[in-house]
Design a protein around this nucleic acid. Structure first.
Lengths: 202, 202
DNA sequence: TTATTGTCCATTGTTAACAATTTGATGGCG
DNA sequence: CGCCATCAAATTGTTAACAATGGACAATAA
């Protein structure tokens, strides 16, 4: 039997695109979003667009005012940013502690694929793709440990953090750091992986 | 001029009611929710109901399957519950550290009101109301410190934690603990407040 | 008997029209 | 000249009809 081909719902595609636009800075903070315009852009009606806007608002990327529409949220002030980093670290450290000895060869292969994407995107100077691969790597681990439950808690935090970075500071380090995390996981050295992970989240 | 009467949007009312039903256990885990039935119950159309179901799904109270509707989420396994407690503590400790010296007389009056509600609900053995007042107390502090941003991160965690408790174990302690927190805040003794807060979150 | 396929029904996903609300502008009045 | 009330345009909130999807059940063939 062939590998199941993944069906991606319309709403999810729209959400992904908007998230991408926001964290890439294409949609700047305080930009107002019009439901009808978005509906036209994606070739759907306002219904699904409304759903997506609601979701992104819950995720903290957008802010909504009653009967006044939504706009792109502003960057976090430093103390909140610090809190977010701390919470994200706790979640991911928790994740790999739960994963000790649980990861299969298939998991490792998947993570290797993501690292390849990361490297390729870096070589091509596609920084948006670098960001996506970076997030995918971490999400894979979080999801493997805590499922949708934990991922839903973790994801908005990452997105909010990313909104604050205009661009990846040192993409090269980014690749190396993830390599270190993966190698440590493969060797089942959780302490090493934890240290590498904490160094990567900043 | 008359005091501004607070307008509570339809969606919010529906969301509050459903959250209440879920936390109180009236809607047991794995219960499937039908959009049309809910629409009839609240006397609105499916649109707003869909919006609410999406939100509660984001909050982790419900789980959704494509084209298959939503159902009430199950309780957390112990390790996740522990992580949630840890993160919630971190957020609330952050909140009161930010609030040092910032709370006004009006804030204290508001918090006193909530404590009265808590005491009354306890006296009347209205455990649902006890839970609501309890949450309101903490939410007031979190919101005062971090606004909607922090509240949106914090709230789902609290809700998920509450789903795991069938009932308040010792309502009397609950009142005393919140009294201790408020008194410490009034005296601007952040260390004391932090200790009391950490003892209350469990 | 058992596995497969086809049909039906219940439910969700989507759409477009309608109602309600906010904003900004315009004009009269102090 | 500035301020407030009133009105119009634009935008969101809501509704109900329509399309599409998934699951259950029965019929068929091996």
């Amino acid at each position: 039997m062939r590998e199941a081909t993944k069906i991606i719902p319309v709403r999810e595609q729209i959400a992904d695109q908007l998230r991408s636009d926001i964290i890439s800075g294409e949609l700047a903070p305080t930009t107002k979003l019009n439901e009808q315009q978005l509906a036209n852009r994606f070739g759907v009606s306002r219904g699904p667009v409304r759903d997506v806007l609601l979701q992104l608002t819950k995720e903290g990327l957008l802010v909504a005012k009653n009967n006044c529409g939504v706009s792109v949220n502003s960057v976090l002030d430093p103390s909140m940013q610090e809190l977010m980093i701390d919470i994200r670290r706790r979640i991911e450290v928790f994740a790999i502690s739960q994963l000790k000895g649980k990861l299969t060869e298939m998991d490792f292969a998947e993570l290797e694929d993501i690292l390849v994407r990361l490297q390729d995107a870096f070589d091509a100077q596609e920084f948006n793709e670098v960001t996506k691969a970076d997030i995918d790597f971490h999400r894979y681990l979080v999801h493997a440990a805590g499922g949708d439950e934990l991922t839903n808690l973790w994801y908005p935090i990452v997105l909010r953090m990313r909104m604050n970075y205009k661009r990846i500071s040192k993409p090269k380090d980014c690749v190396d750091e993830h390599r270190a995390i993966l190698d440590a996981l493969k060797a089942n050295k959780i302490n090493v992986a934890t240290t590498a992970l904490r160094a990567n989240i900043k």
